[in-house]
């Protein structure tokens, strides 16, 4: 693999962040002292209220922005603006880390779906034969053959999300970063995406997902990190531990008090979207 000399593949550690701070325009803090270590093949989930810094954190991991203070290392190499002036390093990093944006609109900028999907591998110097092979595989996996010659703006939200995912998966990155992958999608498309992530993880890929959708967390994460109002990680642990810590979730605006009626009986309890009906049935 060209450019592999840049990274340390002996160590299982992929990302290491030490005391990372980031602010927008130097005035609006978005991350205040984040420490995290992510190993190869892990599937982790970032949860937190709006404005807790989840998207900023993911963009730092994909080196789209750089830390004001602290260090972000990928396979032992510190990520900063200077190192990305080296075209080979940049290419190698982008081949290994794929990012799926929260807003699919920004990710689809080519005239057709097909061009959008092949944009990444073309820019990363993949051979045309390989691109064609992966394209055919993804078309079958995501059932998007009918969309290929269409313009992205003519697609529904679910279709756009599928295409955005295909445009990243075709690069076959070792690390997949997803920002709210199921937001606004119907249950079937949500299910398809979850299955895709589980399969990617089973193939050895590292999956890093930020989501509000607590009912998918257990399936797509072994470890969950909670970002708090302090704009740093306030707690981390196995998904089942975090999701049953109602007080933690309530403190971080991840659940709310919910009042509803079953026949003639009124229930008031935290709304978790986690089989809550089963408890009172």
């Amino acid at each position: 693999m060209a450019g592999c000399g840049y990274f340390n593949f002996m160590d299982n550690l992929i990302f290491e962040l030490n005391q990372v701070y980031f602010s927008y325009l130097g005035r609006y803090p978005a991350l205040c002292g984040v420490d995290i270590r992510i190993s190869s093949g892990e599937k982790i989930c970032i949860i937190g209220a709006n404005g807790a810094g989840k998207s900023t954190f993911l963009q730092l991991l994909d080196a789209l922005i750089f830390a004001d203070k602290g260090s972000v290392c990928f396979r032992g190499k510190e990520l900063n603006e200077k190192i990305f002036t080296d075209a080979k390093f940049s290419q190698e990093f982008r081949r290994q880390v794929g990012f799926i944006f929260q807003n699919s609109e920004v990710q689809l900028f080519c005239p057709t779906v097909k061009e959008d999907i092949v944009f990444g591998p073309l820019n990363l110097g993949f051979e045309k034969g390989l691109i064609q092979k992966r394209l055919e595989m993804l078309i079958a996996a995501l059932n998007i053959e009918d969309l290929l010659e269409r313009s992205p703006h003519q697609l529904s939200i679910g279709e756009k999300r599928k295409v955005a995912i295909a445009s990243t998966l075709i690069i076959d990155p070792q690390v997949l970063i997803l920002d709210e992958p199921t937001a606004g999608l119907d249950p079937l498309v949500t299910r398809n995406i979850i299955d895709l992530l589980i399969q990617a993880n089973a193939e050895g890929k590292t999956i890093i997902t930020a989501t509000h959708d607590l009912h998918i967390v257990e399936e797509i994460a072994d470890t969950v990190y909670v970002f708090g109002r302090q704009k740093k990680i306030v707690k981390s642990g196995p998904a089942e531990t975090i999701l049953t810590d109602t007080q933690l979730l309530q403190e971080n605006n991840l659940v709310h008090i919910h009042r509803h009626k079953h026949k003639d009986k009124v229930h008031i309890h935290p709304h978790l979207h986690l089989d809550h009906h089963g408890e009172d049935a």
Partner: peptide, 8 residues
């Protein structure tokens, strides 16, 4: 950013 992310 989305373009950069895919190697543009």
């Amino acid at each position: 950013k989305a373009m950069l992310s895919r190697g543009y």
